[in-house]
Design a binder for these strands. Structure first.
Length: 458
RNA sequence: GCCCCCAUGGUCUAGCGGCCUAGGACGCCGCCCUCUCAAGGCGGAUGCCGCCGGUUCAAAUCCGGCUGGGGGCGCCA
C-alpha cells in the first residue's frame, strides 16, 4: 500500500449532534470526513454539536461508541481532549457571545424584534408565506416591549456570493436569495450557524465534510467566516442517501441505525464501511478496508446524485467480507457470543473455518452453530445409511475436519445413491435443520462420542 | 409558493464532443459442481444514456425548456 501523505496542517472534523444514534446516512458522512482527513495525513477532530439541548436523545458516549464500532479514530475530541477544546459547543457559549458582540459592532449582525414563529409544523406544512431572501426580517429593527430579540446575520444589499465546493463545484448565488439567518436565539444561546462557524475557525478546521442539506446555508456561513476575519475552510457537501424507492430515508426507522446493523444483525463493521464509504464512487472490485480506501481517496470524485441505500447490496458485500476479509479472531469471538450453546475452543476453531463462506452476517454464524444444541438421541435411518458406511467414518483418527471429509468421501463413493445417503447423514446429525455447516464440520465439532450417539441406528 | 441541487441497465457507477452499435462491478437468469445453505466455474439477459427542442460535420457528453427526485426557505441541526 502506498505511503500516505502526511500533512498535519489539514484539519477536518465531524460534528454530530446528539439527537439520535448514528444512522447509515450519518455514518457515511462521518466515514467520508474521516477518509478525507486520513488520506491527507491530517488531524481529525470530533466536536459535539449540542446547540439544541431540547432535541438531545442520546449521550455523547453513544456517539463515540458508534463511531468506534465503525473503526474510526480521532485525534482531538470531547472525550480525548486536545489543544483547541472544549469540544462541546454548549461549553463555548461565552466565546460565541463575545463573537456576537464583535459582529454587531462590525455591522455584520443586527437585533431583530420580530416575534418567533409560533407553530413550526403548521408553518412547514401549510402554504408557505415564508420568503427566502434578505431583508425579510429588517422590518422590526427597533426594540419592542416584551420581545427578546434574535440576532441576525446582515446580508449585503447587492452582489453575489461565490464559493467552490469540492463536490458540487462553483456555487454562485445572488444575495437576494440569501436569507438573514438567526445567529443567536432570543435566550442568548447561539444557533448552529454561528456556533459551527466560530468553532471551526477557532479549532483551525481547514476542511469541512457535511451533508448536502447544508448546501443552501453555505453562503451564509461564508459570510460569517468573512465577518470573523477567518479563512473559509474548504467545504465538501455530500449528497444525502435516499431509500429503496428513491424517496427520502426515514430517520424514524430504527433498523437504519448502525448500532442495530452491527449489534443486532451482526453486519461486520468492515463490510458496512466498505459499502457506505464506496457509495457515490466507482465501485471497486476488491473489498477495501478503511485504511486501504484512504490511500486513494479523493472526495472530488464523489457523485452529485443521491445514492440509494440498498440493504440487499449491503448483505451481498457483508457475505463477501466474511468470506474474504474478516479476521478469524473476530469471527471466533462473534461465534462464541451468538451461538445458542457454549462453545469449546476446538469447536470455535472448526466452525470458523467451516462457516465463513456461507454466512451473510455474524448472526447467521451463530445460527449455523445451532446443530450443536440439538439432542444427541439416535436418529439414523439404517435403510438408507448402513453401518458399514458409518463405522469407518466414526473410526476416523485423527478426528478433524480434513480427515473426516476424506473418510466420508471414501465411505460414500460417487454414485446414484450418494445424495440420498449423505442426506440421511445430515438428517441424523442435524434433524429438522434446514441450513447447517458441511457434514465433516458438524462431525468435527460434535466430537466422536456425540457424533456416534446421533449416528446410532434408530 | 419561492430558491438551490441532481438525473447512464434493478443498484453503485465509468464516460468530461468523434476511440461508445455506452465500459465495469453488484444483483438477476441459465448450466456445471454439490449433503442443506453458501462458495466456485462457465454462459446470458438487462440502457432508445428521463423527455422535448437547439448548437455542431459529429452529443450520453454543450445550451434551453419540461418532467421526476432531493435539499432549503425555523429563535432545528
Amino acid at each position: 500500500m502506498p505511503e500516505l501523505t502526511s500533512d498535519p496542517a489539514t484539519r477536518g472534523r465531524y460534528a454530530p449532534s446528539p439527537t439520535g444514534y448514528l444512522t447509515v446516512g450519518n455514518a457515511r458522512t462521518a466515514l467520508l470526513a474521516w477518509l478525507d482527513v486520513r488520506s491527507r495525513g491530517g488531524r481529525f477532530v470530533l466536536r459535539l454539536d449540542d446547540t439544541d439541548t431540547a432535541r438531545e436523545s442520546v449521550s455523547a458516549a453513544d456517539i463515540c461508541a458508534d463511531l468506534d464500532a465503525l473503526g474510526l479514530d480521532w485525534d482531538e475530541g470531547w472525550d480525548v481532549g486536545g489543544a483547541h477544546g472544549p469540544y462541546e459547543t454548549s461549553k463555548r457559549s461565552d466565546r460565541h457571545r463575545a463573537v456576537a458582540d464583535d459582529l454587531i459592532a462590525g455591522g455584520a449582525a443586527y437585533w431583530d424584534y420580530t416575534p418567533a414563529i409560533a407553530d413550526v409544523s403548521a408553518h412547514k406544512a401549510g402554504r408557505r408565506e415564508a420568503k427566502a431572501g434578505r431583508n425579510v426580517h429588517r422590518g422590526t429593527p427597533d426594540a419592542v416591549d416584551g420581545v427578546d430579540p434574535v440576532l441576525r446575520l446582515r446580508v449585503p444589499d447587492a452582489g453575489r456570493i461565490e464559493v467552490v465546493d469540492r463536490v458540487y463545484g462553483k456555487i454562485s448565488v445572488d444575495v437576494a436569495d440569501v436569507s438573514e439567518v438567526a445567529l443567536m436565539r432570543s435566550d442568548g444561546r447561539p444557533t448552529y450557524h454561528l456556533a459551527s462557524c466560530v468553532d471551526d475557525a477557532d479549532m483551525g478546521v481547514t476542511s469541512v465534510v457535511r451533508g448536502a442539506d447544508w448546501l443552501n446555508s453555505l453562503p451564509q456561513h461564508v459570510l460569517v467566516f468573512r465577518a470573523l476575519g477567518a479563512d473559509v475552510p474548504a467545504f465538501a457537501h455530500v449528497p444525502l442517501l435516499v431509500g429503496k424507492d428513491g424517496q427520502k430515508l426515514s430517520k424514524r426507522q430504527g433498523d437504519l441505525s448502525i448500532r442495530h446493523l452491527i449489534v443486532d444483525e451482526g453486519v461486520p463493521a468492515g463490510a458496512l464501511c466498505a459499502y457506505l464509504a464506496n457509495l457515490g464512487f466507482e465501485e471497486r472490485s476488491d473489498l477495501p478496508t478503511l485504511t486501504e480506501m484512504a490511500s486513494t481517496f479523493d472526495i472530488g470524485h464523489l457523485g452529485k446524485a443521491s445514492p440509494r441505500y440498498d440493504p440487499k447490496k449491503l448483505e451481498a458485500l457483508s457475505r463477501r467480507w466474511l468470506a474474504e476479509r474478516e479476521s478469524s479472531e473476530r469471527l471466533a469471538a462473534e461465534l462464541r457470543v451468538r451461538a445458542p450453546v457454549e462453545l469449546s475452543d476446538e469447536q470455535v476453531a472448526v466452525l470458523v473455518d467451516g462457516v465463513r463462506t456461507r454466512i451473510p452476517t455474524f448472526a447467521a454464524a451463530g445460527d449455523l452453530a445451532g446443530f450443536l444444541g440439538l439432542d444427541d438421541s439416535p436418529g439414523r435411518d439404517v435403510t438408507v445409511l448402513a453401518d458399514d458406511v458409518v463405522a469407518p467414518v466414526l473410526g476416523t483418527r485423527p478426528w478433524d475436519a480434513d480427515a473426516l471429509a476424506a473418510a466420508i468421501d471414501a465411505a460414500v463413493p460417487a454414485g446414484p445413491d450418494r445424495k440420498a445417503r449423505l442426506g440421511a447423514f445430515r438428517d441424523a446429525l442435524a434433524p429438522g435443520l434446514r441450513v447447517t455447516p458441511p457434514l465433516h464440520v458438524m462431525l468435527a465439532a460434535l466430537g466422536p462420542d456425540r457424533a456416534a450417539a446421533r449416528l446410532a441406528p434408530t
